[in-house]
């Protein structure tokens, strides 16, 4: 990997809709995808709520931005780390989250899961390894 490429992590710790942070954070990720950095997203604390499936905003008349997460794979954003403890503390499991996939060009375009559930200790290791942390 070139030395010009930095490891960028976007830290998501907030639920969607109550505030705009989750949505505007996602906008940065989409724009940032064009810069060819080594990008990953971390979802912990209330950030895990961003990925819950079945979001329907019709009744609150707000933009439902959850389909955008499904487009991340097309932008080569394929590493979405979700903290296991945060899920469990909230009574959630992987089955409650949107299925997010990408096509792996290095593996004959095989469809793979973008969401990687990791323990808090694993997430801490992943964070330790990053060059830049974006918080919103």
């Amino acid at each position: 990997m070139s030395e010009d490429i930095k490891k960028f992590m976007y830290l998501n710790r907030r639920a969607p809709y109550g505030t705009i942070y989750a949505w505007e954070s996602l906008e940065v990720v989409l724009i940032g995808a064009a810069f060819d950095q080594d990008v990953s997203l971390a979802f912990l604390d209330d950030g895990v709520y961003q990925l819950v499936k079945g979001q329907d905003t019709a009744g609150v008349d707000m933009k439902n931005f959850s389909p955008t997460y499904q487009a991340l794979g097309d932008y080569d954003v394929t590493k979405l780390y979700v903290e296991k403890e945060s899920l469990e503390e909230r009574g959630l499991s992987l089955e409650d989250l949107m299925p997010l996939t990408y096509e792996d060009e290095d593996d004959d375009w095989a469809e793979k899961d973008s969401i990687r559930v990791v323990s808090r200790a694993e997430m801490a290791d992943i964070m330790e390894d990053q060059d830049v942390m974006f918080s919103f």
């Binding site: 930095k6 960028f8 906008e27 940065v28 724009i31 810069f35 950095q37 830049v132 942390m133």
Partner: peptide, 17 residues
């Protein structure tokens, strides 16, 4: 644009939020 934030992340030694 937002690209300016991403670029700042790339070109700076430290991003402080």
């Amino acid at each position: 644009g937002l690209g300016q934030l991403v670029e700042a992340g790339i070109q700076s030694d430290r991003l402080v939020v």
